[in-house]
Simulated assay, not measured.
Amino acid sequence: MSNQGSTANVIAAVCSFFIPGLGQLVQGRLMSADIHFVMCALLWVIFMGWIVHIWSIWDAARWKPNK
């Protein structure tokens, strides 16, 4: 599987940059993807979505699969 800093995690982080939760979806983490997408969508409405957006990028970049 992928390790932190691997190409797969960089791609996931880039995906989350464009659409929050997409990086988690690419990594096969459906529940996490849903949470990131919904939270960001809701918070963008009140102008705080950039916080969850950055969190989504960071989470995708630092994820380590269970061994």
Rank of each mutant, 00 (worst) to 15 (best):
V38D: 06
G23S: 10
V10P: 03
S32V: 14
K64I: 14
C40M: 07
G23W: 05
N9T: 08
A12M: 07
V45T: 09
L25Q: 03
P65W: 05
A13Q: 09
S56D: 01
W63N: 03
M48C: 15
L22A: 15
Q27W: 00
K67W: 14
Q27L: 04
R62G: 06
G5F: 01
D59S: 14
I57M: 15
A12V: 06
N9D: 04
W44V: 04
K64H: 10
W55L: 15
W58C: 13
Q27F: 00
S16Q: 09
I51W: 05
P65N: 09
M1T: 10
C15Y: 15
L43K: 08
L30I: 14
N66S: 11
G49P: 03
Q27G: 05
D59Y: 09
V10C: 08
R29N: 14
S56M: 12
A12G: 09
H53R: 14
H53F: 12
G49H: 02
K67S: 15
I57Y: 06
T7D: 15
A8N: 08
L43N: 12
I54R: 09
C15A: 15
I54E: 10
W50Y: 13
I54Y: 12
W50K: 06
F17Y: 14
A41F: 01
P20I: 03
F47I: 10
V52W: 15
N3A: 08
I46L: 05
T7F: 11
R62Y: 07
W63M: 04
G23Y: 04
A33Y: 02
A33L: 07
L25W: 07
H36A: 15
W50P: 08
S2T: 03
I11R: 12
V52K: 13
F18K: 00
A41L: 02
A41E: 00
C40F: 02
F17R: 10
V10T: 11
I57K: 08
S56W: 03
I11W: 12
P65K: 07
V38E: 05
I11T: 14
S6P: 07
V26Q: 10
A33K: 00
D34R: 07
V14K: 11
A41C: 03
S32R: 07
V38A: 06
L43H: 08
L42K: 00
M1S: 09
V45K: 01
L30N: 09
F47V: 12
L22F: 05
Q24T: 04
Q27M: 03
T7Y: 09
M1V: 07
R62P: 05
V52P: 12
A33M: 08
T7P: 09
V38N: 04
R62W: 06
V52E: 15
S6E: 01
I54D: 11
L30C: 05
I46Q: 02
G23P: 09
S56L: 13
W55C: 13
G21A: 04
F18T: 04
F47R: 01
Q24D: 05
P20Q: 02
M39R: 10
L22H: 02
L25R: 01
W44C: 07
W58D: 11
V14H: 13
H53K: 13
M31W: 12
S6K: 02
P65Y: 04
V14P: 12
L30Y: 10
I19G: 00
S2V: 02
F17P: 09
